[in-house]
């Protein structure tokens, strides 16, 4: 199954991460597939335990994922995963 993976442009300063297509039945599978080819990206999105970083938000289509630790939210053909940042700091 192919899912579109997009990143906030705020990441472009740190990572070369154009929109891409990934395979997987869950967000975890899709991201793991992406990290295999782009290992540097993992630490920007996930903390040391593999959970979504506190100030990173992951949407499937327009819905925030529910399982920020296990990333078990299902995805399907034609879905879009969008990695955003929850603005904070100063």
């Amino acid at each position: 199954m192919a899912t579109v993976l997009r990143f906030t442009p705020n990441l472009y300063r740190h990572l070369d991460c154009p929109d891409t297509s990934v395979a997987g039945a869950t967000v975890r599978e899709a991201l793991d597939a992406y990290f295999q080819a782009n290992p540097r990206a993992r630490g920007f999105l996930l903390d040391d335990q593999g959970a979504v970083r506190k100030h990173v938000a992951i949407f499937v289509n327009e819905t925030l994922i529910r399982d920020r630790a296990g990333l078990s939210d299902p995805i399907g053909e034609g879905d879009e995963i969008f990695v955003a940042q929850a603005l904070s700091g100063g």
Partner: peptide
């Protein structure tokens, strides 16, 4: 400390002329 995107270590081999991302301490 990139805030949203975590801690990143940068290393330079040439006195700071160029930098590249190195491994970060990870639990």
């Amino acid at each position: 400390g990139l805030g949203h995107f975590g801690v990143k270590m940068q290393r330079s081999e040439d006195g700071g002329e160029t930098w590249s991302q190195a491994a970060s301490p990870t639990f």
